[in-house]
Simulated assay, not measured.
Amino acid sequence: MNVLMVGPHRKVKGGISTVVNNYYQSKLISAVNLKYVPTMIDSNKSVKFIYGIVAYIRILLILLFFRIDIVHIHMSSRASFYRKSVIVKMGKIFKKKIIIHMHGSDFDVFYHKESNEKQKKIIRQTLSCSDIILALSEEWKEKIKKYCGNAEILVLYNAAIIPESNLYSNNSCYISLMGRLDERKGVYDLIHIIGEICSKYPYLKFKLAGDGDLERLKKNIKSLGIEKNVEVLGWINNEKKFEILKKTLIYLLPSYNEGMPMSIIEAMSYGIPSVTSDVGGIPRLIKDGENGYLIKSGDIEALKKYLFKLISNEALRQKFSEQTYLRAKSLFDINENAKQLVNIYNSLLSSENEVRV
Results as ranks from 00 to 15, higher is better:
Ala31Val: 00
Val32Ala: 05
Val32Glu: 03
Asn33Ser: 14
Leu34Ser: 02
Leu34Asp: 06
Lys35Trp: 03
Lys35Ile: 15
Lys35Cys: 06
Tyr36Ala: 03
Tyr36Asp: 02
Val37Arg: 02
Val37Ala: 05
Val37Trp: 10
Val37Phe: 06
Val37Leu: 09
Pro38Phe: 07
Pro38Trp: 09
Thr39Val: 15
Thr39Trp: 12
Met40Glu: 11
Met40Trp: 14
Met40Asn: 10
Met40Ser: 11
Met40Asp: 14
Asp42Trp: 07
Ser43Leu: 09
Asn44Lys: 14
Asn44Thr: 10
Lys45His: 10
Lys45Asp: 11
Lys45Tyr: 12
Ser46Gln: 12
Val47Cys: 07
Lys48Phe: 13
Phe49Gln: 06
Phe49His: 07
Phe49Met: 11
Ile50Trp: 12
Tyr51Glu: 11
Tyr51Gly: 07
Ile53Trp: 09
Ile53Glu: 03
Val54Arg: 14
Val54Phe: 13
Val54Leu: 11
Ala55Lys: 05
Ala55Ile: 08
Ala55His: 03
Ala55Ser: 12
Tyr56Asn: 13
Arg58Ile: 11
Ile59Arg: 00
Leu61Phe: 09
Ile62Asn: 05
Ile62Met: 01
Leu63Pro: 05
Leu63Glu: 03
Leu63Phe: 15
Leu63Ala: 08
Leu63Asp: 05
Leu63Gly: 01
Leu64Gly: 07
Phe65Gly: 08
Phe65His: 04
Phe65Cys: 07
Phe65Asp: 06
Phe65Pro: 01
Phe65Leu: 04
Phe65Ser: 09
Phe66Cys: 13
Phe66Thr: 15
Ile68Trp: 02
Asp69Glu: 04
Ile70Gln: 01
Ile70Pro: 00
